[in-house]
């Protein structure tokens, strides 16, 4: 998996932020590309640009190896993301892809937990396979 971060800041500010602050949190500095979208045009393509503030909101997109968007989440600036939930979603999308769509991950799925195998016999019978307590 590759991470790309992107904001309306210049690449020079990205360098300063990495060198003077982020490298103090992450040893060796940021290991992924920090992209610059100074006119917000990429943010507009993804529907997360805030023209009033002139910035991009906290949009997060999971893109599969075919370049298809599998999921996204958008937050206003003051609430940070849940990285472990993002990783869980990526693991779920990877499992579904590897199963070629024969498996599905029910609500509350975590790596190692049971998946569902959708088929005509499962219609009306999910209650036998999945309990509400599995959601938590």
């Amino acid at each position: 998996m590759e991470v790309l971060s992107i904001s309306v800041d210049s690449i020079y500010v990205h360098k300063m932020w990495n060198d003077h602050e982020l490298s103090k949190m992450v040893e060796g500095g940021i290991p992924f590309a920090m992209l610059s979208d100074q006119d917000g045009s990429i943010g507009k393509q993804y529907g997360i640009y805030d023209p009033d503030a002139g910035v991009e909101t906290r949009g997060r997109f999971i893109i599969d190896p075919d370049g298809v968007i599998q999921g996204f989440e958008v937050l206003t600036p003051s609430v940070g993301r849940n990285v472990s939930e993002t990783l869980r979603q990526i693991q779920a999308f990877q499992l579904v892809r590897e199963s070629k769509g024969t498996e599905a991950t029910p609500s509350g799925w975590q790596p190692g937990k049971k998946t569902l195998k959708p088929n005509p016999g499962l219609v009306g019978n999910v209650w036998k396979e999945w309990k509400v307590s599995d959601a938590f």
Binding site: M1, E2, V3, L4, S5, I6, S7, I11, H14, K15, N18, G29, P31, F32, A33, M34, L35, S36, G43, Y46, I48, A53, V55, E56, T57, R58, G59, R60, F61, I62, I63, D64, P65, D66, G67, P77, R81, T86, I90, F93, Q94
Partner: peptide
């Protein structure tokens, strides 16, 4: 983009074949 000490041009299409997490921030 700024990437590991260098300034580079990056395209999303370069990453076809890999899972990508694209994160916008304010």
């Amino acid at each position: 983009a700024y990437y590991k000490g260098k300034f580079v041009m990056t395209s999303l299409s370069e990453y076809l074949g890999k899972w990508i997490l694209l994160c916008f921030y304010p």
